[in-house]
């Protein structure tokens, strides 16, 4: 089909002009999605390099995650299933940070109390009820 199309448009300049003003030209940029070869290479590479540079193997991160859970659990009740621990890069400073998202379990009345307080103070701002993030920076 592609070849037929090429032949169809192949020989005259009139068709060339038609194509260049075709509104479907926008498709040219439509590829800039997360599944283009370029962006997947870019994103995969960033991740790989982050691990290369910090010299942290995935299993080390797992071990760290388990230890963090143990330590934090001593002080506060957390949702052990939903913990996320990732290396991320700040695109502006190129600073690599270890980001830990550790959901905190609050007791029912505590949740209500927080909700009430928040509702009074900031009615327009949506608040995620029981998620608290801890941020740690590495080199």
């Amino acid at each position: 089909m592609f070849k037929q199309l090429l032949n169809l448009f192949g020989l005259t300049t009139i068709e060339q002009a038609n194509i260049s003003v075709n509104p479907l030209d926008r498709n040219f940029d439509a590829d800039d999605s997360s599944n283009s070869g370029r962006s997947s290479a870019y994103n995969r590479l960033r991740l790989v390099l982050m691990h290369d540079r910090t010299q942290l193997e995935p299993h080390v991160i797992e071990a760290m995650r388990d230890e963090l859970v143990t330590v934090i659990s001593k002080y506060i009740e957390i949702d052990k299933q939903d913990i996320e621990l990732n290396l991320e890069t700040d695109p502006e400073t190129n600073q690599v940070a270890l980001m830990a998202s550790i959901p905190v379990k609050l007791k029912r009345d505590a949740v209500d109390a927080v909700k009430d307080a928040v509702a009074k103070e900031l009615e327009t701002v949506p608040v995620s009820k029981s998620k608290t993030s801890l941020k740690t920076s590495t080199k």
């Binding site: 448009f9 030209d25 498709n27």
Partner: peptide
């Protein structure tokens, strides 16, 4: 410079997507 063949390819790719 964008050749019309490139544009056609892009067009084709977009519609396939």
């Amino acid at each position: 410079p964008d050749s019309w063949v490139d544009k056609l390819k892009a067009l084709f790719k977009g519609s396939r997507k």
